[in-house]
Amino acid sequence: MRHAHLASLSAEARAEMRRTERRFLASAAVRYAILIACGFAMIYPLLWLIGASFKTNHEIFTEIGFIPGSPTVEGYIEGWKTSTEYTFTRFFANTFMILIPKVIATAFSSVLVAYGFARFDFPGKRILFAILIGTLLLPNVVTRIPQYLLFRELGWLDSFLPLWVPQMFAVDAFFVFMLIQFLRGIPRDMEEAAMIDGCKPFQVLLYIVIPILKPAIISVCLFQFMWSMNDFLGPLIYISSVAKYPVALALKMSISVTESFEWNRILSMTVLALVPSLVVFFLAQKYFIEGIATTGLKG
């Protein structure tokens, strides 16, 4: 009697387990279906772009699929030459000329400032920190015109200086804030031990803090790299001669005039313009996703 009761109970429990299992599977199937459909829509533009860059112009206008019927690199060869006296070699060189000093300056200045905020006490620190947070939300649009006038007074227009110099002064509060948050989570034990052993704060920064901060500094560099690659308005305002154009401006130029009917040339150069960002992203994915998730940075 008692045994029979137990047996029926466990049968019921097994049935319940099977039902849970089925519900889980059904739910998983629905989730996968939605994710795959959306994922395809997300990636399709990029796939189409890569495919179209190897197509002939005629095929771009007539075929939906992203695999080219008769692949050609004509778009790349002709697109690279451009209709100006410069090739994309020049424009890529300019892009990296802007980018590399900018990234280095950002990393240096942000680390110094973040170290000062996170570890030292000094008069006015609270107010300065509040201002730092305030500038996180300050729209750039309101400071842009006087900045332009300032650089014009200095005679820096049509040079890379307006794009480099502000970064030496930790103007992107995001990066400083990100490093401060990271530093606050690190106990000071090691730094204190080093100081007792006679290290100066600068040595502590160099030999202890920077090695610990390394992953956060890499995140700062990666984000600055991406944002600078994507930056269009800065070069648009400050750089006027084609010889100094970065890729972003060169692309914009190519769609506006003569080449606008040669879609495959423009699309080929568009692919190349995205390559540096994509390569860096896939090499350093974990820094991006962790960086954005833990500090809530904008993307």
């Binding site: 200045s109 400032v113 000062g116 030292f120 008069p123 309101v142 400071t143 006087p146 002064f169 400083v176």
Partner: peptide, 20 residues
């Protein structure tokens, strides 16, 4: 401490506060 944050203070004055 103030020396370490001074780049930020200069940047704030020149590239943010003054243009603002």
């Amino acid at each position: 401490g103030f020396a370490y944050v001074s780049p930020f203070v200069v940047g704030l004055l020149v590239f943010t506060a003054f243009p603002f």
